[in-house]
Structures are given as C-alpha cells and as structure tokens.
Design a protein around this nucleic acid. Structure first.
Length: 419
RNA sequence: GUGGACGUAGCUCAAUUGGUUAGAGCAUCGGACUGUGGAUCCGAUGGUUGCGAGUUCGAAUCUCGUCGUCCACCCCA
C-alpha cells in the first residue's frame, strides 16, 4: 500500500472541524481591523523567495521544494506567505488602494525538513500583512492583533518577545562590530557558530549552547547601533504597547531567520510545543518590495503556525469540540423508512442540516448512533403522532422531547436556533 | 543534512523469544430485543505482520535496504 508523503499528514474531520472553527474566529478578529483575504498561488517563481527570504537562509538553501515546469520555469512551492503577498501587491498595483492595504491569508506552506513535534513538510499558516505605511502604530496594531487572537482562543499566559534589528545600514555596521567582537572570543564558540560568524553573525546571538550564550552576553547590543529614526520607531512602539497594557519582553537576542526583516521583529512562544516552540512570528519588512524590483513599500505582518496553535490548544484542553448542529431524522420503525427518507430530503432542500440513518434498525440504535456522532437533535417520524399530524422533536442534550405540528416545523426549528 | 526510538486488523495490544492455519478487546457490518439514551446476547467482515531482498528446514521475530511515524540536532511557524 502506498503511503502519504513524509511530513504531510491527512487532516481528518475531527481535526478539520476544529481548524475551521478556530480560523473562522480568527478571521472575524482580523476583519474587525479591516484586513481582507488574499488567496495566492501555492507555487511562485523561485526568485520571489530567493531574493527576499535570502539565498543564504536555510529555508531557501535547503528547504524549498523547487522544480522546473515543462517550459523550464524555475518554480518553488511557497515556504511562507509574506514575499508573495508583496509580489502580488506590486503586480496588481495595490498602491492604488487606500494605504495601508491590509490582507490576511490562510493556506498550506511547504518546507523540506525532517518532521518532528510541531514541524511538518506541509503545514498551514495564517498570516496578516499591512502594506504601504511605516508608522509604528501599524506595528503595534499587528502585535496587538496577534495577541488578541491567542487570547480569544483562551490562551492567557503567552507573551511577546520583541526586538529591533534596525535598518540595513545600521545592521551592516553592527554586523561588523559583532564579527570583530566574536573573533576575539573565537575559541569559546561552538563549531556551528564558528561557521556562522562570517556568514551570518547575527545567528550566533540565537545559539542555545551555554558557551556561546556566555560569549554573547558581553557582545555589543544592536540597540546601541540603531539610527535615531529606528530608535524612535522602536521606542514609540514600546510606549504604545505600555499604554495599551500589552505585555512584552525585549529580547535583544531575537533575530529572525528570514533576511527581509528590518526594525521590528517579534515572536510568541509556548513551552507546550517542545523544541519547535514558536507559535507565531513576524516583523517589519520595509525593503522587501525593492528586493523584488518594485518601488519601496513598507510593511509589517506576522504568520502563525496553525498546527502548532492546535497543539497548544489540545494540551490545554481548549480545542473546540466537534459538535454537529444537525438533526438526526429517524423513522420510528422500519415501516416508515421510505417516508422518512423523503422527509429527510425535503428538510435538507429546505436548508436544514440533516442526517439520515441508512442503516436504521430501531429507534433505540438511532438514539445511540446520534449520541455517538455528537448529534444533539432528533426528529422521529411515524406512529400515532404522525397520523395526527405531529412529529417528535428530541433535544438529546437536554434529554427532553416535544410534539411539533408538521406545518409549524420550519417556524419551530428557526426559533429553536442553530440549524 | 545528522542522531536515536518505532512499524502486527480502523484503534489499543497479544503471539511461550526462530516453530503448526498470527489472536483478543474496542470499532464496523448483520441478526435478536413492541416506540426512546451510548446497554445486552448471537454472528460476520477485517492481515501478503509497512514494502522488498537476504539468512534458515522454518521469519511477525535475525540481517540489510526502502517507505512511513515519533523525538532531538539544525532551522523555523
């Protein structure tokens, strides 16, 4: 038997339903802040990611699913959503919209990695991007929304890690300073960091090895190398977060693995996720559009790992239950099977959610089946009640039932609610 | 890309350690039970032991390969 590809799990109804409920909730929140959905292709010209995420990043260097189509175009399955959102903005001239233009997206992303807890080869991102404005208020909005989402799902004890990595020139100056500092302590670094030193010195700050943490404790801090503009931007964000009573932690070791970020970067962690503990990450990317050959379009956004979110909710017992708000249409006995079936079709056509027991045996097993399926309502069709023009309506949760006149059924159900 | 654990029915697990025809519970399906709460009883379906080689008189069991799962490194959401 052929199996599904590694790291690409099937999502069955018990979980897909939870995801739907959660995503609907999240969409409601971002729509309240006037973000609109953008649906983008699953694959792009590889260049979109090479030029923005960065040639030297792990994502581009070894994790992209890249292939050539029949005309020789070099394409990649998207590993993330920000770069292509900006590409779409440029291509569709969305600067003609009132700025900032605000979008959300939800869909599968692909990275060729060894699967482990919280990490898959196909996984879902929910993200928002606000393009065309560089005011610090917009950064605050994005951070605030990310926390509101998590709180609305019942997660309380999460806080944001926040940092500013400055603009390109400042960062380049800082990189050189950092490099020369690290060279003086070269022998104390781990083997990985020795390699990182020349290629991507910022990553050394991120190393979890104790010896490296010891070294970088004394390292120059990027905050001290920010331009006045960058510093003001960052400080404005902090003071507004304070005003809004949003909790955060400044982490000057926080650097992100994608090259397009500048100034604000932030992440939200959870200890329930094992080693892959980031549930959400984002930041500002004012230069991304220029990497794609467009005009300057500042932007800020975040992406959230949907599987990781589900995992946290699962361990905290906060996953919405898969309750089916549908009506089990059961014959009273086998002699009513056909008539009940026709009644079921009629109700479904009348826009009610209905289930029909094709394997009907008797009323007792119908009730058992309904309970097993988490169905809360039942209509029983047949018997003396039917002869007198009534149907039996059961509320299985409340454990009560009542007789409804057939011609009043629609009204009754609409008033009862939820169908 | 590196390292470790694992793979028997849809699920949870057996199979006297290499020895007849691979078993059980749950689930599913069928039957019994006058028309009402996950019940009970009877019966059935379900397996090329992930797949492929090798060792052996004999392999679920040992070896190798491969696919997949889980975990960690790395990296990220």
């Amino acid at each position: 038997m052929i199996k599904g590809p590694k790291g690409a799990p099937d999502i069955l109804p018990d979980k897909s339903k939870s995801i739907r409920v959660i995503i609907d909730k999240i969409i409601k929140i971002v729509e309240n802040f006037s973000y609109e959905e953008i649906i983008l292709p699953i694959f792009e010209h590889s260049e979109v990611f090479e030029r923005t995420v960065g040639e030297d990043t792990d994502i581009v260097e070894k994790e992209m699913y890249t292939f050539f189509d029949k005309s020789g175009r070099k394409l990649s399955l998207r590993p993330e959503g920000t770069a292509q959102t900006v590409r779409a903005y440029l291509e569709n001239n969305l600067k003609t919209l009132t700025q900032p233009a605000k979008f959300f997206y939800f869909g599968p992303m692909f990275r060729y990695e060894r699967p482990q807890k919280g990490r898959f080869r196909q996984f879902f991102h929910f993200g928002i991007e606000a393009l065309g404005d560089e005011k610090p208020e917009l950064d605050v909005e994005v951070i605030s929304i990310s926390l509101q989402i998590l709180e609305s799902l019942g997660l309380k004890d999460l806080s944001v890690s926040l940092n500013s990595i400055g603009d390109i020139e400042e960062r380049n100056v800082y990189k050189e300073k950092l490099k020369s500092f690290l060279r003086t302590r070269y022998s104390e670094l781990c083997d990985d960091c020795k390699k990182r030193l020349e290629k991507n010195p910022l990553r050394v700050l991120d190393c979890k090895k104790e010896s490296c943490i010891n070294v970088t404790k004394d390292a120059p801090k990027i905050i001290d190398y920010l331009s006045n503009e960058s510093k003001n931007h960052f400080e404005k964000i902090l003071s507004m977060l304070d005003d809004l009573k949003i909790k955060y932690e400044i982490n000057n070791r926080l650097v992100r693995g994608l090259d397009y970020y500048n100034r604000t970067v932030f992440e939200v962690f959870s200890s329930d996720l094992g080693a892959q503990n980031a549930v959400l990450g984002g930041g500002r990317y004012d230069y991304l559009s220029e990497y794609l050959g467009g005009d300057r379009v500042p932007g800020v956004g975040f992406a959230m790992g949907v599987e990781r979110l589900i995992m946290i909710l699962e361990t905290k017992n906060l996953l919405p239950k898969n309750e089916k708000n549908i009506i089990f249409i059961s014959p009273l006995s086998k002699e009513y099977f056909e008539e009940t079936f026709k009644f079921y079709i009629y109700l479904g056509k009348s826009d009610f959610s209905v289930y029909f027991p094709y394997n009907f045996k008797n009323i007792k097993t119908s009730i058992s089946n309904a309970l097993k399926m988490n169905i809360n309502y039942m209509i029983i069709y047949g018997g003396d009640e039917l002869k007198n023009g009534f149907l039996i309506f059961k509320d299985l949760k409340k454990e009560e039932q009542q007789l409804i006149k057939i011609e009043n059924l629609s009204n009754f159900l609409n008033n009862y609610g939820g169908f």
